[in-house]
Design a protein around this nucleic acid. Structure first.
Length: 293
DNA sequence: GGCCAGGCTAGCA
DNA sequence: TGCTAGCATGGC
């Protein structure tokens, strides 16, 4: 199945996928100009490749595996949402020109969009795993988690891992994750969350229609999810435009460095500096994180 | 070896 | 309501 996706420019596929290369593991691969990963379709795992369309402006997505023909429109919508193809960055850029410190950072990355995870569940689990860990080790743990709990798909003779569904993780024991070097509480957070979903007591998709503050309230009521994790889901799972995870250590470092502050700013200082980025604080955060490399 | 990581909870004042 | 120790382990 081949799907053409028109783009809203400015859109730089190179800037947009650059960040993904650092996540290259079993479910993310970037080769020959195309981004590859597995997703879950109605009938089972699918392999997705996305690249720039060489014949006309836009992206071209190819889907391998047993996709339901009636699923095409749905898949098109999902991929468009993942890659932000209908997001217009122009108003954000117009506003950021007013910030002489941040603008040069943005100007070097014109057309950089955010690529979302394939599901809210995947986003939430990855974010919980990443809590308080350096990104390198967090990536190692995510990879081990996928290898342990994820299933596999066969596509054109190649075997691919698929990010596990909540039902698969719900069957694990805490000690299974302990063996991967998760701490006890993180193992509990992830398995307990997965059990809630598998038992039908929590439906992350219902968050899609709620305003930011209600999403925050629902998520932070769950054990293991604090403000930072909820903000990350809003930004990286739901593509909400105006979040500022001001307590985030990486964001504080980036702001301190860029604005030439004598010491790392605290949360309130970041919030004060970031006020002028509203209503696009998520994008400002995303571009600032990108400066950390 | 020591300190820090794109935090959160539980326990205490 | 606000503060803090403890968590586990890699990276530097």
């Amino acid at each position: 199945m081949r799907i053409h996706l028109p783009l809203r420019y400015p859109y730089s596929f190179a800037h947009t996928t650059k960040r993904l290369k650092s996540f290259e593991k079993s479910i993310y691969v970037y080769r020959e100009g195309a981004f590859w990963r597995t997703i879950r379709g109605r009938k089972g795992p699918l392999l997705l490749s996305v690249a720039e369309d060489s014949e006309r402006p836009g992206l071209i997505a190819e889907i391998f595996g047993e996709a339901d023909p009636e699923e095409e429109e749905e898949l098109k919508g999902r991929i468009a949402h993942m890659f932000g193809t209908d997001v217009d960055l122009t108003p954000f850029y117009e506003q950021m020109r007013q910030d002489p410190v941040l603008w040069p950072v943005i100007e070097q990355r014109i057309g950089m969009h955010l690529v979302l995870d394939a599901s809210l569940y995947e986003c939430l689990v990855k974010t919980i795993i990443s809590q308080q860990l350096n990104l390198s080790f967090a990536g190692t743990l995510i990879e081990r988690f996928i290898q342990l709990a994820g299933d596999t798909g066969q596509f054109a003779g190649e075997t691919w891992k698929v990010f596990p569904a909540a039902e698969q993780v719900a069957c694990l024991r805490y000690e299974d994750l302990r063996h991967l070097q998760f701490n006890q509480r993180k193992a509990e957070y992830i398995i307990d969350l997965s059990r809630l979903i598998a038992e039908g007591k929590l439906d992350l998709e219902t968050l899609t229609g709620l305003p930011d503050d209600e999403v925050m309230k629902k998520l932070t009521a769950l054990r293991g999810i604090g403000r930072w994790t909820a903000e990350c889901l809003l930004m990286f799972g739901l593509r909400r435009p105006d979040l500022l995870p001001a307590a985030d250590i990486g964001l504080r470092n980036a702001v301190g460095r860029l604005y030439g502050l004598p010491a790392r700013p605290d949360e309130s200082e970041v919030r004060r500096i970031g006020e002028k980025w509203a209503p696009y604080r998520s994008y400002a955060t995303f571009y600032l994180w990108d400066t950390l490399g």
